[in-house]
């Protein structure tokens, strides 16, 4: 069974649907129409570009070139985590926390998958490395960003409650404990939900892709399961890293709450 190749016309049809949605958003005054169009345009350009880059990359086996590509992917993911914060950390911390957490959530897990689980030879073969890493970065990013956003936003809003506990002699980890737990939970709920309904309600993207590409459904299911489990682990590790580093950064050496290390929200 061969993959039916999509023509530019097919893609234009789906683009018209997004245009309609943007128009609707404008009529309903939702205020996201512009952002929706920009995001759609971005994904068009980015996906076509990455298609070409991958085509070139798969014919290469230079580890430095592959390394450079993964580094760019990581930095963009770190930037994206930062961009989704309502109250960003000031200075290099916003980008640093996001990037480090993405490194934990994706690179380490991808490496485990390639070396230990799948056993690719050499482990940096781009056909496996790049899609796996991309999938992990993309899917763990939302969890990490959600957790970090939830942490900084709650700390900002619940300043009085945190300080009330500090006044009574609480340590910083006691005063922020509840907020920390809620932030972590908010980051993990989406992946828990998608694991729960995988196969029942949703056929996840990777499996759909493989089936459309002609793989036997059971093989596709196994890969999808592997990915889901890795995403769950990566999201958990990345969110924990983000929330712990983030919450420590909210206090100084005298364990004072230092909201001046966050930027006030725009809008």
């Amino acid at each position: 069974m061969d993959l039916i190749v999509l023509t530019p016309f097919d893609l234009s049809l789906s683009a018209i649907l997004v245009l309609l949605l943007a128009l609707l958003s404008y009529r309903l005054q939702l205020g996201v129409g512009r952002r929706m169009l920009i995001a759609a345009a971005r994904s068009t350009v980015q996906l076509l570009l990455i298609g070409m880059v991958l085509k070139f990359l798969f014919s290469q086996s230079d580890p430095f070139l592959i390394g450079a590509v993964t580094l760019i992917m990581l930095l963009v993911a770190g930037h994206e985590v930062m961009a989704r914060q309502k109250h960003r950390y000031i200075g290099p911390w916003a980008f640093g926390i996001g990037t480090f957490s993405m490194l934990i959530s994706s690179f380490s897990v991808t490496l485990i998958a390639l070396v230990v689980i799948i056993g690719v030879e050499p482990w940096y073969s781009p056909q496996y490395l790049i899609p796996l890493l991309g999938m992990l970065l993309g899917n763990t990013m939302s969890g990490v960003a959600l957790s970090l956003d939830n942490l900084s936003r709650s700390a900002w809003e619940k300043r009085a409650i945190i300080e009330a506990q500090l006044m009574l002699g609480a340590h910083y980890y006691q005063a922020i404990g509840q907020i920390r737990r809620e932030a972590l939970r908010s980051g993990l709920i989406p992946i828990i939900n998608s694991m729960s309904v995988a196969g029942l309600v949703s056929l996840p993207g990777m499996m759909t892709g493989q089936i459309l590409g002609g793989s036997p459904p059971l093989d596709a299911a196994k890969y999808q399961l592997l990915i889901l489990l890795l995403i769950a682990f990566g999201t958990g590790m990345g969110s924990i890293a983000a929330v712990y580093i983030g919450s420590i950064r909210l206090f100084d050496e005298r364990q004072r709450l230092r909201l001046d290390r966050l930027r006030a929200a725009r809008d």
Binding site: A164, L166, M167, L168, G169, A170, H171, Y172, E253, R254, Q255, R256
Partner: peptide, 13 residues
């Protein structure tokens, strides 16, 4: 530490 100090110097806001 900060917490020990605040425990001794009780502040009622």
């Amino acid at each position: 530490s900060g917490p020990d100090w605040r425990r001794r110097l009780g502040l009622l806001p």
